Simulated assay, not measured.
Amino acid sequence: MSPIQTTIIDNLAIRYAASISGFAESILLLNPLPESIWAFEPIWDKLAEKFNVIAIDLPGFGRSQIREALLSPVVMAGFVKKAIDHFDLGPMHIVGPDVGSSVAMFVGQYHPDRIKSAVVGSAACVLPICSDGILTGMILDPDMDTLKSYGSKAIINGALANMTSYQLSHDVREDYLVSYEDGRFWDTMKFLKSLPAGLSKLDMDNLRLPVLIIWGETDPLAILKNGEILHERLPNNEFHVLPSGHYAWEDTHESYAELITEWVSNGYKRDHTY
């Protein structure tokens, strides 16, 4: 993983890592929840061998500064457009597992000149909401009283327990826990609760963006049905199911990195329409 840095984008302090080596293709990684850019440590070196790679903690996530108005996928897509302009590498491939999936698709819908393709997965990103376990309550419960009774640290550790093969280091786990202290975890729930209204604006049937869909076969939270619906409805996509739960980018990181490498090298240029 490249050194962690901070930059100012849209007047917000944004944590990022970057490996820029003059390659033809550039990738922007958007952090998952309840993780940060450290989630991409297992795939970083593989991607950085062939592409310019930048990872950012989205505003309000990881260690990036929050602006409450950005906590919806539609508005966050506008921020990501500004982030792409900030790094000045031209149109990028956006890899957005988990909360980044809907954001990446909205970048494709509203800012198609800034994005070459999207890699999505492990997300509640279709309507009606398809989720299970605690994620359903995070999105659909009208208040957070039940969730708050557990405490954010316990919820984060419980979510990370779904990581079945990859072993998190102590330092990375601590980064995740510290990133969402002092009420920041509850702020991210505002993003999740915005999904039903936000996803109603996503015109999947007419989104021409090339999309690589990667899903964990036994995802217990953002269930596989999301990926199946995306595959059925997105006009230009490729769909892969990996033998993992929610954290495909870590538990099956070698396969995950290989799929992205092939896609960004050439796969996104193929005609996947049907």
Rank of each mutant, 00 (worst) to 15 (best):
H93F: 11
H93C: 14
H93V: 12
H93D: 09
I94C: 06
I94W: 09
I94D: 04
V95F: 00
V95G: 09
G96V: 03
P97W: 00
P97M: 04
D98A: 09
V99T: 10
V99Y: 11
G100Y: 03
G100P: 15
S102T: 04
V103A: 02
A104P: 08
A104Y: 05
V107M: 13
G108L: 02
Q109S: 10
H111M: 10
P112Y: 04
D113S: 15
D113V: 15
D113E: 15
R114Q: 11
R114Y: 15
I115W: 01
K116I: 10
S117M: 08
A118I: 01
G121M: 11
S122E: 13
A123K: 06
A124R: 01
C125P: 10
C125M: 12
V126I: 15
V126Y: 12
V126L: 08
L127F: 08
I129R: 11
C130R: 15
C130T: 11
C130A: 12
G133Y: 10
T136Q: 09
T136W: 05
M138D: 06
I139Y: 02
I139H: 03
I139W: 06
L140N: 07
L140M: 07
L140E: 05
D141M: 13
D141N: 14
D141Y: 12
D141S: 12
D141W: 11
P142F: 13
P142Y: 13
P142L: 13
D143G: 10
M144Q: 14
M144A: 14
M144C: 13
T146K: 14
T146S: 11
L147Q: 07
L147D: 03
K148I: 11
S149P: 00
S149A: 06
G151T: 02
K153Y: 03
K153L: 02
K153R: 12
A154E: 04
A154Q: 14
N157R: 06
N157D: 01
A159F: 13
A159Q: 15
L160M: 08
A161F: 02
N162M: 01
N162S: 04
N162D: 02
Y166K: 11
H170T: 11
D171P: 05
E174S: 15
D175I: 08
D175V: 12
Y176C: 09
Y176E: 07
Y176G: 07
L177H: 10
V178P: 02
V178C: 04
S179R: 06
S179Y: 08
G183Y: 03
W186V: 05
D187K: 15
T188L: 00
M189F: 12
K190T: 06
F191M: 01
F191D: 05
F191V: 05
L192P: 02
K193Q: 06
K193N: 04
S194N: 07
S194E: 04
S194D: 05
